[in-house]
Design a binder for these strands. Structure first.
Lengths: 199, 199
DNA sequence: GTCTATATGGGGATAGAC
DNA sequence: GTCTATCCCCATATAGAC
């Protein structure tokens, strides 16, 4: 982790991450990727074995699977858990906006690549569903449909704001990550009908 | 509107809507579109002048611009307005899930086609922003950042549920449209910190 | 590991017959 | 309005030299 020049393999990964985020997988050619990376076209085949595998390697490299694993080891109350998931997801999306965008794209397009994402992210959303259920049973929350509640939380956390179309509506100075997390926690917990005891 | 066979132009439009929704614009070829439409490849050029223009024509044909125009003629209080926008948007997305998906894709991918969408939809979100602002001034709502509040409402309404990746987490029987609208209104108004007087 | 050169297919688009 | 046949370009991928 010195100032050494990155090798071609990593440069290709970084270029692919950037371009996939901007233009989508299908909208990006390996030629573009290699231009951006300052690498030769043939190196995609050599290092990864094709464009599809570059996509897979992206998630191997940059998706925070260990962090999710650690999260699952913890014990927590529903309210704590919901707040923690909100904070962690927002923090990750802020730390790697490109991977977040790629993820968002895969959610709305049925692609032969979805499983890379599903495998890694579904456990977290399933956990969230469990927390909501438990929280409602314990009387912490009061909302109607569990599925619908889950969707609201996901929507509040995942709705993309660093995309051009959304940015063009916003007018205020961007908040700090911590401020965004806090506002999201407040909105979500209120929305779920949390009985006001801690907040 | 009889049982007359649709002409090739319309068949192409419908096929394109379906395929763009499933696979994205770049992931769909005009050959695929014409196969699906039972039409000849050359007809895309003849009727539209290219694939890009098929996309534009899709919004000319199916986007409910008149309905939005009518909405703008009405006078309404912030709470009423927010509830109405929630209801209208959810109703439209349910009535044309394919166009909704295409819209969602355009939001997360910077494409040379975004302006078709922006031109039509931004006025509505700007109006919503105004309603939130007015509502907060009047004391109907209490929330922090206006931009952030706007994003929460948009996320709650727009988060896609009829996509495979999201569906695989859900477990309950789907709600009726009216039930979804009601739950969304409750979640959003609670989240915005509405002072409980009408609801 | 990295390059050049090339193979092979599919992409969008159109000329011109019907 | 609709078809066939064709053009040309750009896509991914690889063989083989360095």
């Amino acid at each position: 982790m010195t100032h050494t020049e990155l090798d071609a393999k990593m440069r290709i990964l970084l270029a692919a991450k950037k371009l996939f985020a901007d233009q989508g997988f299908d909208g990006t050619s390996v030629r573009q990727i290699c231009d951006e990376a300052g690498a030769n076209v043939a190196l995609v085949s050599y290092h990864f074995g094709g464009k599809e595998n570059v996509f897979a390697a992206l998630f191997d490299q940059f998706f925070p699977s260990e962090r999710i694993d650690e999260f699952f080891k913890q014990q927590m109350s529903p309210v704590e858990g919901v707040k923690l998931i909100i904070a962690e997801v927002i923090r990750f999306r802020k730390s790697d906006p490109e991977l977040a965008k790629i993820t968002d794209q895969e959610v709305v397009t049925r692609s032969p690549r979805t499983h890379h994402l599903k495998r890694r992210i579904l456990p977290l959303w399933t956990k969230l569903r469990g927390l909501l259920e438990e929280g409602r049973e314990r009387g912490d929350f009061r909302f109607g449909s569990l599925d619908q509640g889950l969707l609201f939380v996901m929507g509040s956390v995942l709705f993309p704001k660093n995309v051009h179309m959304v940015e063009s509506i916003l007018q205020e100075e961007p908040l700090s990550v911590d401020a965004i997390i806090e506002e999201t926690q407040i909105f979500v917990l209120r929305g779920l009908g949390m009985v006001e005891s801690d907040k």
